[in-house]
Amino acid sequence: MTEIKFKLNGKEQTLNTDPNRRLLDVLREDFKLTGSKEGCGEGECGACSVLLNKQIVNSCSVPLANVDGQDIVTIEGFSKTKEYQVIKDSFATAGGVQCGFCTPGMIIATQSLLNTKPRPNDYEIKIGLSGNLCRCTGYNLIIKSVKLAAKDGDGLW
């Protein structure tokens, strides 16, 4: 048991727990933040994506020890922001959502991308999404969703 402190969705949290636990399990079990999903459990599919210090990471591959003192934002926290509203509307408008299981991860990936590249070209969008697998859409309309978000949210990032 180790004391781990971190900021989660803007709130300081302290846990006394096994630092070898995966961040994903802690989010889903201890905080009931089930928007982050487990698709593969080995950092391949991106369904578990969260923002760590504003950048996308696979929470299934992050031991809790590595989160001590860091800033974590999950889809639940991110959904309170202006940036989220823009990304949400663009995914809805462009048709970027089908089964929805990869979607929170895709939203996080989009935010992490636009945060560093507010006006990405097609290639940069594909790179930005390249760690997030989707089996429903063939990515075509997800890429269009991200493009639309960058356009509609121009100036926000």
Binding site: T34, S36, E38, I75
Partner: peptide
């Protein structure tokens, strides 16, 4: 607009796990 967009994008949609 698809009726389940909102719950799926926000991560509120519940899957069995």
């Amino acid at each position: 607009n698809k009726v389940d967009n909102e719950e799926k994008i926000s991560g509120k949609a519940k899957y069995v796990a």
